[in-house]
Design a protein around this nucleic acid. Structure first.
Lengths: 356, 356
DNA sequence: CTGAAAGCGCTTACAG
DNA sequence: CTGAAAGCGCTTACAG
């Protein structure tokens, strides 16, 4: 990198000590107007720009935080917005943001995990916002570094004591509960939940659904179908095929996410079952793709930028106050009503709605 | 930030000088195995992690580059992939990546532009990858900083001498030309281009289209419709309404981007005009939303991750070789054939296909 | 092969 | 209100 003028050059030109120059640069209050004036002129004349590395070293802070996107090949729309939320908040505090993707296996012991240098080295970043999909080993490895960090709670898997962490969540359980209650309000009784409860995030969805069902004296009904990781739409499709084969009637579906809902919609379309006339669907997440789908899918939305903002806010609170106890903050979701739900059995009241 | 052991502590524990410790850390070749051994043990014992700020200061390099996303409220899917491409390449070189959004007006003179501190200060980043939508004033302001930078060429507007810059482009002109030739190969003669040539990126699209048309002795046909910035789909819709009102027949459309194509598709659907039976459409960019659309839109795709890789690669070449002359690198596009194109007038051969 | 010393560009008590 | 000096944690000629 090209070297520029330093405070030494300024001090020489302005005829003051480097301490004074430093004070001017840092807006120190006890300064005569004249000296300040002289130094300012020198700054102008030499086109001085302070050196961040030097300041970092002596102040022992990088004023930089790191956004870690774990185990994601790409930045999806969801995380793109979280990242923007983090960036905005970080910059509003005149701090910097390092972005890094980090892939790791859940099986590697924490001590053997090779962390990215920017995290592992001292002085590069003051704290971490950890998003993407995370496992206890990485959390533990970061903890061993004694660097403050916050984690997006929803995508944590495995055995870990959440109460020891600083986490921010969106309330998928509450959202699913609200969705289920909405369907119940529409007089649905045979509501099925499409979500593979093996995954913690889907389990929370299921629990929200279950709570609502039980509260209204209805029998919750999950499925035993296992999710084949990458293509969630296929899962929705498979679930539909399953309930069509089963004996019990189903008049409404709450899906663990919109991709599942979309897969279900495709399956219904294929089978000539009309949404919402014959069956109602609620998705979750409000992904952008829903805009292009007919009928519009009723879904649960979370303000992703806000999520990023809350993550970074919590991190900075922790940074400013080392005594801040671990905590969990939850963002509520918004229920978005579109056209995919209707009262059950409107046009075939006598018979069982589906799979009779 | 919590302080940890320094090379001083290591030198004391290992019983060697700090110079020697530094040599071990930096894998200096001239070192006796024994000394290295001693120092390594000390490193283990104290759990030493080097301090990046100190190293940055003395080496006069941050080993960090900055990705600047200009004038974008969000990270769209296109830029999300570019960013990932940059991140991967940067990390493969063990360097860091700072992410920043920067909004500015095209009108502000370069000297008055308030640059983000991370760019303006010395020592924070070694170079910049500039993406998003950019104007000459910012480019000039960055140039005044004497910090190496590369720019995504396609989204630069205004009067600027591209030949003085390090730019990476995707070949939208070539892509549109190929798309047009494809339609001509299908025997289309009345092909219309939906792109507001006031914008440089759409102008390049138009030029590719124009070239192909002229080469085949066909009359290129643009529209005078102006784009209302944010909602491109509306533009496609408006264009369709326009050609339906006009006298001349149109059997195929090449659109400046997929949103325009989607808007056009919606308009055709509304009017009962079938794609591709009655009219053919080609889009551009291959946005994710196309997956959910019927019929599948034939389009032009660019490898966005590759774009990010090329951007950072060029930057590092420049960083390593200050004598590297400015240059323009162009990535070719890929033509993706789906179901939105067919030979013209298959079922109404005698009459004029549309707006007869 | 190793150490003493200077230096990177700042900040910050400590005097005055 | 201002300056001389020490120091942040490293790297790197320069000797030996």
């Amino acid at each position: 990198m090209i070297k520029g003028p330093t405070i030494k050059d300024l001090s020489r030109l302005a005829g003051v000590s480097i301490s004074t120059v430093s004070r001017v640069i840092n807006n120190h209050p006890d300064l005569s107007g004249k000296t300040r004036e002289k130094v300012m002129r020198a700054i102008e004349a030499l086109n001085y720009r302070p050196n961040r590395s030097a300041r970092q070293l002596v102040r022992n802070t990088s004023e930089t935080i790191c956004f870690v996107l774990s185990n994601r090949e790409v930045i999806n729309a969801f995380h793109a917005r979280i990242l923007v939320g983090v960036e905005k908040y970080v910059r509003s505090l005149s701090q910097n943001l390092i972005f890094i993707r980090f892939d790791y296996s859940a099986e590697t012991p924490p001590e053997e995990l090779v962390l990215p240098p920017v995290i592992w080295e001292r002085g590069a970043v003051d704290g971490l916002v950890i998003a993407g999909t995370n496992h206890p080993n990485f959390i533990q490895a970061v903890r061993n570094l004694h660097i403050p960090f916050v984690v997006l709670g929803n995508n944590i898997t495995g055995k870990i004591i959440i109460e020891d962490l600083y986490t921010v969540w969106f309330d998928s359980e509450g959202g699913m509960r609200q969705a289920t209650e909405y369907l119940i309000g529409l007089k649905h009784e045979h509501i099925c939940c499409f979500a593979d409860a093996t995954f913690p995030w889907y389990r929370r969805c299921y629990e929200g659904y279950e709570t609502a069902m039980k509260e209204h004296g209805l029998r919750p009904r999950g499925l035993d179908i296992k999710l084949q990781e990458p293509r969630c739409a296929d899962y929705g499709y498979a679930c539909v095929m399953h309930i069509l084969r089963a004996d019990e009637p189903v008049t409404a579906i709450v899906a663990g996410d919109d991709e599942i809902a979309l897969g279900a919609l495709a399956a219904f379309n294929e089978k000539g079952i009309r949404v919402p006339k014959d069956i109602s669907i609620v998705g979750s997440d409000d992904i952008d793709e829903l805009k292009y789908v007919n009928p519009g899918i009723t879904t649960i939305r979370v303000d992703r930028e806000k999520l990023g903002e809350e993550l970074s806010k919590l991190l900075f609170e922790r940074l400013q106050n080392p005594k801040l106890p671990p905590m969990k903050r939850v963002l509520s979701t918004e229920f978005v009503i579109r056209q995919s739900c209707a009262p059950p059995g409107s046009q075939r009241h006598a018979e069982q709605p589906l799979a009779s």
